[in-house]
């Protein structure tokens, strides 16, 4: 186990497109809700998240290191349907059991060679 992933935007309850002012505002809101003296661990996480976003250069780096979420499809496609019919191809495949096509032991067809 290594360090768990933390999305600083999620910690500050922000969209990834948030402006600098919104980041600052969100930080203060979070600190008000989780003051260090009452909730030191949460405060630490909030502070760390803010540190990663407050400086524009560091924010660019942070943004590139964020994990991406696989997008859900814009429209839901029709799921595949069950096919519960009997297929003739399968009947004929099974009928191979009536023939020698799958047989592998042909010793009885060997001829004795003498020279």
């Amino acid at each position: 186990m290594t360090k768990p992933y933390v999305d600083p935007y999620a910690v500050l309850e922000l969209q990834r497109t948030a402006t600098a002012a919104e980041i600052k505002q969100a930080y203060f809101t979070q600190v008000r809700n989780h003051p260090p003296e009452r909730d030191p661990e949460t405060f630490k996480r909030i502070r760390a998240a803010y540190e990663r976003l407050r400086d524009p250069e560091r924010r660019t780096e942070t943004d590139m290191l964020l994990l991406n979420v696989w997008p859900e499809p814009a429209r839901k496609r029709r799921p595949p349907k069950l096919d519960l019919a009997l297929h003739h191809e399968d009947v004929l495949t099974a009928a191979r059991a009536l023939t020698d096509l799958e047989r592998t032991d042909w010793r009885e067809h060997y001829a004795k060679i003498k020279l």
Binding site: D90, A94, A97, E102
Partner: peptide, 10 residues
């Protein structure tokens, strides 16, 4: 069954 493909079909 006499042949594996038939077993698979079953």
């Amino acid at each position: 069954l006499p042949a594996p493909p038939a077993t698979n079909v079953r």
